[in-house]
C-alpha cells in the first residue's frame, strides 16, 4: 500500500489543495481509503490526522471500508421519486440484502427525465428502471462476477 500512496503523493506534490484529489486517487486504486493511509496523508500534506479524518468522513463519496464487489447507486432524489424510485430502492435493498453487491442511495444522477435511474460501478447508467429490470441487471452482474 505504501508504494501506491507514495506514487499518488508524488503526482500531487505541487498541486494546491491536493487533499481531495489524493483521496479520490486512493479510493480509485484501493476501492476505499484505509485507516492506515490517514497518518501518511497527514504527513505528506503537513496536516493533522484529525483534519484528514474530518475531510474523509465529511464527504459521502469516500469510503473507509472495502465496498462490495459491485456498488449500485439508486437515485432517491425528487425527480426519480416522481417516477417510483422509492419502490425501486426498497426492492433493491431487499434484493441485495445478502451477496456482494452493495446498494447505496445517491441524490441525483442528472437523468431526471428518464427516472428512476441507477448507476452500477460509477460508469454504467440505466434509466426507467423497474423492479423487474433491476432484477435482470443484477442477474447479469452476478453471472459476470
Amino acid at each position: 500500500m505504501l508504494n501506491t500512496l507514495n506514487a499518488i503523493f508524488a503526482k500531487h506534490r505541487h498541486q494546491p489543495g491536493a487533499l481531495l484529489p489524493i483521496l479520490h486517487d486512493i479510493q480509485h486504486e484501493l476501492g476505499y481509503v484505509p485507516d492506515l493511509a490517514v497518518p501518511e496523508i497527514a504527513k505528506e500534506l503537513n496536516l493533522s490526522r484529525a483534519e484528514v479524518h474530518g475531510v474523509l468522513t465529511y464527504y459521502h463519496h469516500f469510503r473507509q471500508s472495502p465496498p462490495g464487489k459491485h456498488v449500485v447507486h439508486v437515485c432517491c432524489a425528487e425527480a426519480c421519486q416522481a417516477n417510483g424510485s422509492e419502490a425501486l430502492a426498497n426492492h433493491a435493498a431487499t434484493r441485495l440484502l445478502s451477496g456482494d453487491i452493495k446498494m447505496e442511495p445517491v441524490y441525483c444522477l442528472g437523468l431526471c427525465s428518464i427516472g428512476p435511474a441507477i448507476q452500477i460501478d460509477e460508469l454504467k447508467l440505466h434509466a426507467r428502471v423497474t423492479p423487474e429490470k433491476f432484477d435482470k441487471l443484477m442477474q447479469e452482474l452476478e453471472v459476470r462476477s
Partner: peptide, 25 residues
C-alpha cells in the same frame, strides 16, 4: 478539473471554494 465528492452543500459557492482548497465543504 476538480472532482467533487458527493456533498450537495458544496454547490454553495464558499463551501465549494473550501472543498477545492482541500477542506471540508
Amino acid at each position: 478539473v476538480r472532482k467533487a465528492a458527493g456533498a450537495y452543500v458544496c454547490g454553495e459557492e464558499t463551501a465549494l471554494l473550501e472543498s477545492i482548497e482541500g477542506k471540508r465543504g
